[in-house]
């Protein structure tokens, strides 16, 4: 019955628009003045309608894969569910605070890895007492110290893989009700990937609902029983992963 399936995320006809301020190529002071006088809409302010009315319900215990070609709005949708991007129209409802597990969490490049770990944990809302015992664990998990003491060096000295691993390790250190994963599994070398996949499985076991954005069909098939296929901001298909994947593959091959 309906009461057994408890919804955790409800997306109700959501629209998301990015406003992009461009430095116009043919813009001169005179053109700018003319624009103000005539009241014309600035040509350099462009709107990108990234999500054009998406609706679905996610239930407790589900793992949902989001698939689609580049620029189809997958990451944008995740950010909106996390409440990090405002919706233009419609609404997104969620139980608790969904957390985005991304590799994009910007940290401070001039600071050593250790201090970035503390900063990241505090930014996720942990208390200093909670953070203290976590630091070593996070650094060990990220494996940045495998080649000497890198955790005390500034992050700008890290290779891109090392930095990405550290970011993933930081954001995976917290438990979540609704977990949103954006390409995080594609980070690092094979050894680290194995470890991070295990961590995601653990997090999944504790989280109510998991969303996964990935271009790797294998990782979607492995983790998600349900998939949503987004194409230019609209849902093309929503259903069991096998069926949606089949349609998606047929579409991509065209």
């Amino acid at each position: 019955m309906a009461d057994e399936r408890e919804p955790t995320v409800i997306v109700d006809d959501a629209h998301i628009t990015y406003r992009v301020q461009q430095s116009g190529s043919a813009s001169s002071p005179l053109a700018g003045f003319k624009r103000i006088v005539t009241g014309a809409k600035p040509t350099i302010l462009r709107e990108v309608h990234a999500i054009k009315g998406v609706s679905f319900v996610a239930y407790k215990g589900e793992a949902i894969g989001l698939i689609g070609t580049n620029g189809s709005g997958k990451s944008t949708l995740l950010r909106a569910i996390a409440g990090l991007l405002p919706v233009e129209k419609g609404a997104i409802f969620a139980s608790g605070q969904p957390s985005l597990l991304g590799v994009n969490a910007a940290l401070m490049n001039d600071l050593p890895g250790e201090r970035n770990v503390v900063l990241g944990c505090l930014a996720m809302g942990m208390s200093p007492a909670e953070v203290k015992p976590m630091v070593k664990e996070i650094i060990d998990f990220s494996g940045i110290n495998e080649r000497g003491d890198f955790s005390s060096l500034p992050m700008r000295t890290y290779s891109s893989g090392m930095a990405a691993r550290l970011r993933f390790a930081i954001s995976a250190a917290k438990k979540h009700d609704v977990l949103l994963i954006d390409e995080a599994l594609a980070t690092g070398d094979a050894k680290f990937r194995k470890r991070s996949e295990q961590r995601v499985r653990d997090l999944r076991a504790e989280a109510g609902t998991v969303f996964l954005v990935s271009h790797s069909e294998q990782s979607i098939r492995d983790t998600c029983e349900r998939s949503v296929w987004l194409e230019s901001g609209l849902i093309r298909a929503d259903g069991p992963t096998d069926e949606v994947m089949k349609e998606y593959e047929a579409f991509v091959k065209k």
């Binding site: 019955m1 919804p7 995320v9 909106a80 569910i81 919706v87």
Partner: peptide
């Protein structure tokens, strides 16, 4: 199947109502 119904198929409730019933908060409120 390529489309799932927009409203919750089990109850036929509008999504807004479903969210309210289960006490879900608006993301980014």
């Amino acid at each position: 199947m390529s489309q799932t119904a927009v409203a919750d198929s089990d109850t036929g409730l509008p999504l807004r109502e479903l969210a309210r019933r289960h006490g879900l908060g608006v993301a980014g409120r």
